Amino acid sequence: MAQFLKEEIRKRIIKSAIKEFSEKGYDRSSIKSIAKGADISVGNLYRYFENKEDLLREVIEPVFGELAQMINAENILSDMDYKGYIYNKLNRFLDLYIANKSIFFVVIDGCKGTKMGNIIDSFTDMLADNIQKLISKFNIGDLINVWGFSRALAVAVIQGTISILRDSSDEDVKANFFQYISFLMNDFDQRLEKI
């Protein structure tokens, strides 16, 4: 019974932290407000989390751990239908985003200055690795700096995605996102050959 209560309190703290970080950003959020939102004392909150940054990590890691697994490039070359593979991954990404929208915006808008502050750069590098592996699938010999080119494309995808997530309603986000990705990927292999 006691373990159930501890888990319930932990969930309330995380829920309150998500709300606080979403509304105020990490910098302006306070442990006192998070504890109040969880209906516990500040001292009790510190029994569960060492500090505010530890709480931020707990909020972010489950969602972004799953996202990191999705971005993992290991299977991109195993399937000849790379577009189908990519669209499947992107659809899973959007489902994850819709289910965890507030956590995504905590990361996008409010982690600077924390240990989690470089998470967007980390995901950009992972995506660039995927793009580099995809480019190598087409044996493009004339591309001088494949990593630089891949990272530039990854930045475009990440920043474009953030813009779409920020500016689209929940009803329109998938259509807008897939329109953007389709534009970027249309004849990708043929355009690579022209470089």
Score class of each variant (00 low, 15 high):
16 S>E: 06
12 R>K: 15
60 I>A: 02
102 S>E: 15
194 K>A: 12
64 F>M: 00
157 V>T: 11
68 A>E: 09
161 T>L: 06
116 M>T: 09
180 Y>C: 07
157 V>R: 07
169 S>D: 13
3 Q>P: 05
142 D>Q: 10
23 E>N: 10
112 K>A: 15
12 R>H: 07
85 Y>E: 03
134 L>H: 02
37 G>F: 07
45 L>K: 01
168 S>Y: 10
55 L>Q: 02
52 K>C: 03
27 D>C: 07
185 M>F: 15
144 I>R: 12
148 G>Y: 02
105 F>D: 06
155 V>L: 00
58 E>W: 11
41 S>D: 11
186 N>R: 12
170 D>A: 13
155 V>Y: 04
9 I>P: 08
19 K>R: 14
150 S>Y: 00
132 Q>L: 03
52 K>G: 04
169 S>L: 13
151 R>W: 00
143 L>H: 03
165 L>F: 15
127 L>T: 04
190 Q>M: 13
156 A>M: 15
30 S>C: 08
62 P>T: 02
192 L>R: 11
20 E>L: 08
75 N>G: 14
181 I>D: 08
6 K>Q: 14
83 K>I: 15
182 S>L: 07
134 L>I: 08
26 Y>W: 09
130 N>G: 03
124 T>F: 01
13 I>C: 02
65 G>K: 02
73 A>E: 00
167 D>I: 08
82 Y>S: 09
114 T>A: 07
95 D>L: 11
137 K>D: 00
130 N>A: 03
127 L>P: 05
195 I>S: 09
127 L>M: 05
42 V>R: 01
9 I>L: 12
96 L>I: 08
97 Y>I: 12
113 G>E: 02
47 R>Y: 13
147 W>D: 03
127 L>I: 02
123 F>A: 06
141 G>M: 08
164 I>C: 03
140 I>Y: 00
12 R>G: 06
144 I>F: 06
144 I>E: 15
7 E>K: 14
16 S>I: 05
68 A>V: 04
167 D>A: 14
117 G>N: 11
171 E>H: 06
43 G>V: 00
145 N>A: 12
72 N>M: 05
92 R>K: 14
72 N>Y: 05
10 R>M: 05
88 N>V: 07
125 D>F: 06
45 L>M: 03
172 D>S: 15
109 D>Q: 08
183 F>T: 12
38 A>L: 04
93 F>T: 14
136 S>Q: 09
70 M>Y: 15
96 L>S: 06
117 G>I: 07
125 D>W: 06
177 F>S: 11
177 F>Y: 15
28 R>Q: 10
34 I>E: 05
167 D>H: 11
144 I>Y: 06
189 D>L: 09
194 K>G: 08
71 I>C: 01
21 F>H: 04
171 E>R: 13
33 S>D: 14
70 M>S: 09
184 L>K: 11
131 I>H: 03
147 W>N: 03
157 V>G: 07
16 S>V: 06
191 R>L: 12
64 F>E: 01
61 E>N: 04
97 Y>S: 04
161 T>V: 09
60 I>R: 01
51 N>G: 05
102 S>M: 13
186 N>H: 14
109 D>E: 10
100 N>T: 03
185 M>T: 15
188 F>H: 07
153 L>Q: 13
170 D>G: 11
145 N>D: 15
